[in-house]
Nucleic acid binder design. Sequence first.
DNA 1: CGCCTGTTTGAAAGATCTCAACTGTAGTGG
DNA 2: CCACTACAGTTGAGATCTTTCAAACAGGCG
Lengths: 254, 254
Amino acid sequence: MDMRFDLAQKAQEDAAFVMAAAPSRGCGGQYCDRCEVRDQAICADLDEKQRGALNRIGRRVSLQAGQTVMWEGDSSTLVANVIEGTLKLSTSTGDGREQIVGVVYASDFIGRPFGARTPHSVTALTDARLCLYPRGAFDGFAREHPALEHRLLQRTLDDLDRTRAWMLLLGRKNAREKVATLLLDMRRRLRADRDGVIELPLSRQQIADVLGLTIETVSRQIGDLKRMGVIALAGRRGVRVVDEERLEGMAEGE
Amino acid sequence: MDMRFDLAQKAQEDAAFVMAAAPSRGCGGQYCDRCEVRDQAICADLDEKQRGALNRIGRRVSLQAGQTVMWEGDSSTLVANVIEGTLKLSTSTGDGREQIVGVVYASDFIGRPFGARTPHSVTALTDARLCLYPRGAFDGFAREHPALEHRLLQRTLDDLDRTRAWMLLLGRKNAREKVATLLLDMRRRLRADRDGVIELPLSRQQIADVLGLTIETVSRQIGDLKRMGVIALAGRRGVRVVDEERLEGMAEGE
DNA sequence: CGCCTGTTTGAAAGATCTCAACTGTAGTGG
DNA sequence: CCACTACAGTTGAGATCTTTCAAACAGGCG
């Protein structure tokens, strides 16, 4: 417990550092031209000129794994596109129990536009790069560009659908089903290497925080799946799905 | 268990009936003029003419408690504003475990615009009235009216925040905290009568389905709260919060 | 009055959590 | 290259919480 608070403390200092130290170089058009997520992110439907204008209000920022960009309850001053890396969205109870409420990947959007408060913390799980905008300026730009707002709406509606689907998992699935579902979900989102191994962006504790379980229960379930031959493990973070069909059955409680 | 399936079956027939039987009278401007939720719903920022145009593609529909308007997994053909009443959004696992993923009230928006599938069922908890639009026509209208899309975006962002906050409850709170949190939430949303009693729109089973518990656990927790003098009960659905402060403490696990 | 349905209560079983010890691995420095 | 350290992850045993199964109770309605 102490450790987790220390980590958070440390990350906060790091984040402050990044914010202060990042050169305010803007994202001149040259960045967008070779942007890896240009066609998936919410800016996809903007034309060259509009994209240039949006760029002028934002800047690129690099994060190290563990750094926190936004804090639950803080006033909402930043929004961003994820260019590379994986981040978690999380909330906590007063006494420190944590729940991860979302995991975001490259081309996803983070932050709370059109709202005063950031409802959850955002922390990098891997090293990451963001295209960061001051919220006020972004809000103004969005209001003037319906194409952008429409994309943002689509994305938010999708997020809401996914989040509600996850509520079924949290409220009604048992530990076995939860772990199986997460593994399948990660497999869908992450690219496997040539051996079919996917590198999880989450530690055991973070898996527990996504699933609403304890670290021990997660460890036991993963151990069981391995012993049953449904998955194989490769190091701490590596997983290979051996028997997909059976894993899918387990995710649904069969 | 059987009973719950029967109910669903029955509701499906009812819904089909409503859809077929509802006169396609349109919502001519005269409806909007005296619409109870006009200034809170997503149509609030439209001018008279635009509102008239929107009305022409929609119609009013009345629902009885228990009727289902949309079915999880069905193709998304309808969206609606809630004019009056309370409805639940729910999903289920293959083997029939249900999770309520949202409760909507007057002036809220339901349905899945800009998407092919309805991700959850929508069922009336009380008698209700809707302003119902075919999805295709609504989508088209929305794309041409940024003010409407902006309102919809705001609302969707708020829904997402609320949903994520509920994930913390589902994943990390115990039964006592869950029940206390729900009661406070309902108190915030529902108007109490002169005695301070709020009429819950949910049965015990539905409360269990919102909180990810069983009906027996809910019953025991409510019984405990009553015995402790934190709440008082009035009939099956009536609740009065006697000691708000203590209830708030319990919601946070103190 | 008796039935139907929703709710409450009790007792026992089962799942997950808690606490504690142990293991393995990645990283560090000699 | 190896020894050592630090820490993530695993395992075990017992406690705790919630569920399950069963039965009793209560209010509304024919």
